[in-house]
């Protein structure tokens, strides 16, 4: 009897049937092959960064970046245009997104808040070309602003607001409930709670959201191209035309190589890539610090 049992146990523990060998071998090989799929992501990134640097860096002098001369082989005009337009757009987006997010997180009852969150999510999922059309139809035609700095900036603000809105909402809802209740329970008014307790805790995450919105917004092309016209001068006022880096790429990428305009497009692409990657790194660093701080709050 005992011998029977041990032989059964042996046959289970040291099962060498073809099926078991196949199962274990399959598992082992798929574990070796699946990680190779990371090449699908890593190889294009390396290729993209390498070739764009190769085309852009040798001719990218300090003069090319800083000179705002109106002739087509300098980037200064586009850099100043990008900076001013996104400064304007980000300010507007922060204004709307921050107030909206705080209101949803702190004041709105849960059922209504979920509707608002859904609509913010839908805005994020809307293709950017649709936002460009909205900007063109509403601001350029209906408001009569034409293809100008202001139309582009307000359209970009439309694009960036939902991102900032969602982070502000998340940041204020993820303030630890004991801290919120302690503040409100000891008699703080909502405004006092928001400014003195909630804001310091939520601030890093909101900052992450702003940088993230900026990183996504700076890379957008369609809304800008549809609502502004290119210019060889830096924007003089809100009604002037403006050139931004992404629009510069779109206009010049298919020009004949002999004109040198393609090189300008590659240099603009290189700068955009650097800006976006730096913003992404900043987002990562801030959110790591923030997560540690938030964990500290619970201790």
């Amino acid at each position: 009897m005992a011998a029977d049992l041990s032989s059964t146990a042996n046959s289970i523990l040291f099962d060498r049937s073809a099926r078991t060998v196949w199962r274990i071998g399959f598992d082992r090989w798929i574990g070796r092959l699946l990680p190779l799929l990371f090449l699908v992501a890593i190889f294009p990134i390396l290729s993209l960064v390498y070739y764009i640097s190769e085309k852009a860096v040798p001719t990218l002098t300090w003069n090319v970046i800083t000179s705002t001369s109106p002739y087509g082989d300098h980037l200064g005009v586009a850099i100043v245009g990008t900076f001013e337009l996104y400064l304007f757009a980000t300010s507007l987006a922060v204004l709307f997104g921050l107030f909206g997010g705080v209101a949803v997180a702190e004041f709105l009852p849960e059922s209504a808040a979920n509707w608002v969150r859904t609509s913010a999510n839908l805005l994020v999922g809307t293709p950017s070309v649709i936002l460009g059309y909205m900007g063109y139809i509403t601001f350029c035609l209906y408001f009569g602003w034409g293809l100008t700095f202001e139309a582009g900036a307000v359209t970009m603000a439309f694009f960036m607001t939902p991102y900032i809105f969602r982070t502000a909402d998340l940041a204020f809802t993820s303030v630890p409930a004991p801290i919120r209740e302690a503040a409100l329970g000891s008699g703080a008014r909502p405004s006092q709670y928001i400014l003195k307790v909630g804001a310091p805790i939520a601030f890093p995450q909101i900052l992450t959201g702003i940088f993230l919105a900026l990183a996504i917004g700076v890379g957008e092309t369609a809304p800008i191209v549809l609502t502004t016209t290119a210019s060889v001068l830096v924007p003089q006022n809100l009604h002037s035309p403006v050139t931004v880096l992404t629009a510069l790429i779109w206009e010049n990428y298919a020009q004949a190589p002999s004109t040198g305009l393609q090189t300008i497009a590659f240099q603009a692409a290189f700068l955009i890539l650097v800006i976006v990657l730096v913003l992404n790194v900043v987002v990562r660093v801030i959110s790591t610090i923030y997560r540690k701080r938030l964990e500290g709050l619970y201790q």
Binding site: A41, V218, T221, Y253
Partner: peptide, 23 residues
């Protein structure tokens, strides 16, 4: 390895476009 995949999301579409078109 995972950040490489996430990095793909950060690259602007116009940069993808010029890389794909020229290279």
């Amino acid at each position: 390895l995972d950040p490489f995949v996430d990095l793909l999301a950060g690259i602007p579409s116009v940069v993808y476009g010029i890389w794909a078109f020229i290279i």
